[in-house]
Amino acid sequence: MKILNPRVGMLSNHEVLTHITAMKARYLEVHQRVGGVNAMKAENLETVMKEVRDYLLASPCANQTDENIQAFMRAVSAYPLEKGELLQIINERPTTVAELDCIIEEMDARFSDDQGQDILAVVVQHLPPRPKEER
């Protein structure tokens, strides 16, 4: 085993969820086409796929689409936010100033109160809310 590049790039939760959902659909299709034996996967893979899926389906990314995120990125480009901050905003979908304050470093110094409210408005407008808690 050789690690060529430990960090090619970052993935948003939405991308990971889409990938796992696509894998599941592909395995299901194999299962129906050629039978269960060929669709058997390693136990560790089944476990981690289920657990990550459960976690992500309860998070705000469950209802996101590619279009949502693209629209959000266009709208938010007016504000000088760092890449990591944008990724966290997409993953966590903050709805209060307190939540936004956790994510954005030195928020008081970089943005005025009004700007903070504007960012939240952009978030609420473009990113769908998280699914209701059922557990």
Binding site: K2, I3, R7, V8, M10, L11, N13
Partner: peptide, 25 residues
């Protein structure tokens, strides 16, 4: 939270998996 990492590794495909498509195996 999630990142993408690139690897290189020697993968051994046993004869019983030759019936699968190479990519799937």
């Amino acid at each position: 939270m999630f990142i993408l990492s690139s690897f290189s590794d020697l993968v051994i495909v046993d004869p019983e998996d030759f019936s699968k498509r190479t990519v799937d195996a």
